[in-house]
Amino acid sequence: MPDWTPVALLRDLPPLVVMPVTVDGVDLALWRSASGRIAAWADRCPHRGMRLSHGFVRGEALSCIYHGWSYAQSGQCQRIPAHPDLEPPEAIRVPVHHATEAGGVIWVALDTVTTAPPALAGVQPLRSVTLDARFDPASAGLTESGGAWRGTLGGVAVAVLVQPLPDNRCALHVLAESKASPTDLVAASRGIETLRRQAEGVSA
């Protein structure tokens, strides 16, 4: 199993945003602080188990939507609004995983990492889509090269990163050649929609 899983395009996670992602069947809250730091945490509040991806970012901390407990970059609980004068015990801590950005893509690793995620050159981020089906890159005419699946969509050269999801679903993170114009990118985006219909077996 590769160390790193692509989970999102950096463009889709601006500062102050939190979103749910899944890596190797584990639900995570992926979030970005006001200063731009990226973090991937277990998607479960240590208080009563609320999904932290429903929470909100304030400054450098992530707060739970339910009772407002807030957690610092280390995952350590730093504030309990119902007990503002209490220093939260060390034991109240969210499990933290590895998250990093490379080439406009956010990558997550649950455990120890021995390598760096692939640095894709000559491409710009296009969009991420979720397929309610398995994806077979070869039958979509894509070939593997330099850590991504390469081919053309809507007449535009693309690099596709595949993120497996539970229940035979997957997410595709698609990048397009750097020289593609906005018009080209719209065509490539429509090409992705066609590819999804084919993968899901929807007749045209």
Binding site: H67, G68, P81, P84
Partner: peptide, 14 residues
């Protein structure tokens, strides 16, 4: 409304 635009909560009952 966006929570990050709201004031910091105080004394929220649990």
């Amino acid at each position: 409304r966006l929570h990050d635009l709201k004031p910091e909560p105080v004394g929220v009952p649990e």
